[in-house]
């Protein structure tokens, strides 16, 4: 069974190898002519106008937390979906109760204005 993961290991080695090769190549072949412009922070062509080390809005935390909760819901949905045909109707109702409880939390967040950005 573990042989099934062999392509995954090859992909990891390949991906890591490519990254290392490109870093080494650019170090080896690339010229280094440092100018003031080149040494500034890269901001996709924009002029950086203040420090990036700023405090983030707590809204990010709320979004991340909601993401984890629904991520866990998806993880629970997988084994349910695989066994869907074998399970009794009660089990299907049970899963919908599970989803309904989580959606109660989502609606709470929505009504509290947690999703709104201003």
């Amino acid at each position: 069974m573990l042989e099934a993961y062999l392509p995954l290991i090859f992909m990891l080695i390949f991906g890591f190898g490519i990254a290392v090769i490109f870093l080494v190549l650019s170090e080896w072949l690339g010229a280094r002519r440092i100018t003031k412009e080149k040494q500034t922070t890269y901001e996709s062509g924009m002029q950086p106008f203040r420090t990036a080390r700023d405090r983030f809005s707590v809204k990010f935390y709320l979004v991340a937390m909601s993401f984890i909760v629904f991520d866990i819901e998806v993880v629970f949905l997988y084994p349910w979906a695989v066994q869907f045909k074998m399970l009794s109707p009660e089990a299907i109702i049970a899963m919908f109760i599970f989803i309904a409880i989580l959606f109660a939390g989502y609606f709470y967040e929505l009504r509290k204005g947690g999703i709104e950005w201003q």
Binding site: V58, Y61, S66, V69, F76, F98, K112, G114
Partner: peptide
């Protein structure tokens, strides 16, 4: 477990 997750989401909404 779903109730636990509900508590987590309400707690996050409360903090934020």
């Amino acid at each position: 477990a779903s109730v636990l997750l509900l508590i987590a989401i309400i707690g996050a909404a409360f903090i934020a």
